[in-house]
Simulated scan of single mutants.
Amino acid sequence: MADDHHAGARVVAGFAVLLIGTLAMGGCGHKNRPQPAPTATAPPVYTPPSSIAPAPQPTTGSIPVTPVPEGGVTAEDKEFILSHHPIYSEEGSATWYTAPYKGRKSANGQVFSDDALTAAHRTLPMGSLIVVTNLRTRQASSMRISDRGPFVPNKIIDLTIASAKSIGIYRSGTDRVRVDVYQTPKPMDAGGRWCVQIGPFLSEHKAIKFKEKLLSDYSGSKVIEFSGERSYWVRIRPVGDDRGQAEEMARRLRPDEGVAYLTRLD
């Protein structure tokens, strides 16, 4: 995806019109073949508001909560977008999703909300500030990454109902979009906590069998099997949650069912 000065200027100019009108009014399951993690064309710029400052990150074990503001974005986020250029862009298909049960937590550790301007992405750092533009209607909206997915082929981002409505894809269910990244709490091109998520499997037995194979083939890795919506999944975390190892696994793994998706945990 090109991230040149002119494209960035057009995105900012078009989005400015939408945001100025919005601010004047008072602020405002999913499941592609593994794709390489996005690499920023320039170093990420991030000055986190105190309300969403990321928690200290351990080197092993569980992934800490990465909170996003209530509602997904703030007036400060929108002002930042209006005065900066994207640091990374990509195009692809978007869809939308909702939680299968009330109180379900997003991957960032907060309770999922249909009403928040948030989205799921497989590899952008959790908490990233983005603008998603519907390439058919040119509707655009800011939102933050708070979840992981979509774990379905040929989709790059999964939106909440509020996010889908804000760019006009709620009724159609899917559309082609541009994702422009403006802030990332952590570097896109270095570090991170990585894994490979494999599935869906139609039976728990097949998922467990594949889990046992991974435990045998990748000694020292952490492997779990878990259920989804009428499906089963396997996740492998290489030693140290190392990105290079995870990328190699995603390239090599060829499950009998489903797809191996490279996924960032943090």
Rank of each mutant, 00 (worst) to 15 (best):
2 A>F: 06
4 D>L: 07
8 G>D: 06
8 G>K: 12
9 A>E: 11
10 R>V: 13
11 V>D: 10
11 V>L: 13
14 G>H: 06
22 T>W: 07
23 L>Y: 07
28 C>F: 01
28 C>N: 04
29 G>L: 15
30 H>F: 10
30 H>S: 11
31 K>E: 13
32 N>S: 15
35 Q>H: 13
36 P>K: 06
39 T>R: 08
42 A>Y: 05
42 A>W: 13
44 P>H: 08
44 P>W: 01
45 V>Y: 05
46 Y>L: 11
47 T>P: 14
48 P>Y: 03
50 S>G: 13
50 S>A: 15
52 I>S: 14
55 A>F: 10
58 P>M: 00
59 T>Y: 05
59 T>H: 14
60 T>M: 07
64 P>R: 09
67 P>I: 06
68 V>E: 01
70 E>G: 14
70 E>H: 14
71 G>N: 15
75 A>V: 02
77 D>V: 05
82 L>T: 00
82 L>H: 09
89 S>Y: 06
93 S>N: 15
94 A>H: 00
95 T>H: 14
100 P>R: 05
103 G>E: 03
105 K>S: 03
105 K>H: 00
109 G>E: 01
109 G>S: 12
109 G>W: 01
111 V>D: 04
112 F>L: 13
116 A>F: 11
117 L>I: 02
119 A>P: 10
138 R>W: 09
138 R>E: 11
138 R>S: 10
140 A>R: 15
141 S>I: 00
141 S>T: 09
142 S>G: 15
142 S>Q: 12
145 I>H: 00
145 I>R: 06
146 S>H: 03
146 S>P: 04
147 D>R: 01
148 R>I: 05
148 R>S: 05
149 G>L: 05
150 P>C: 03
154 N>A: 14
157 I>W: 09
160 T>Q: 07
161 I>E: 12
161 I>K: 15
164 A>R: 05
166 S>T: 03
168 G>N: 07
170 Y>N: 14
171 R>D: 10
172 S>A: 15
173 G>L: 02
174 T>E: 04
174 T>L: 00
177 V>I: 10
179 V>Q: 08
182 Y>W: 13
191 G>Y: 02
195 C>G: 13
197 Q>S: 04
199 G>D: 02
200 P>T: 00
201 F>D: 11
207 A>L: 09
208 I>F: 09
213 K>A: 13
214 L>M: 11
215 L>I: 11
218 Y>Q: 14
218 Y>R: 15
219 S>A: 12
228 G>E: 11
230 R>D: 13
233 W>D: 07
233 W>H: 06
236 I>L: 01
237 R>P: 03
237 R>A: 08
244 G>P: 04
248 E>W: 10
249 M>N: 11
256 D>Q: 09
257 E>M: 07
259 V>S: 09
260 A>G: 02
260 A>C: 13
260 A>S: 13
262 L>I: 00
263 T>W: 05
264 R>H: 07
264 R>E: 05
264 R>Y: 03
266 D>I: 08
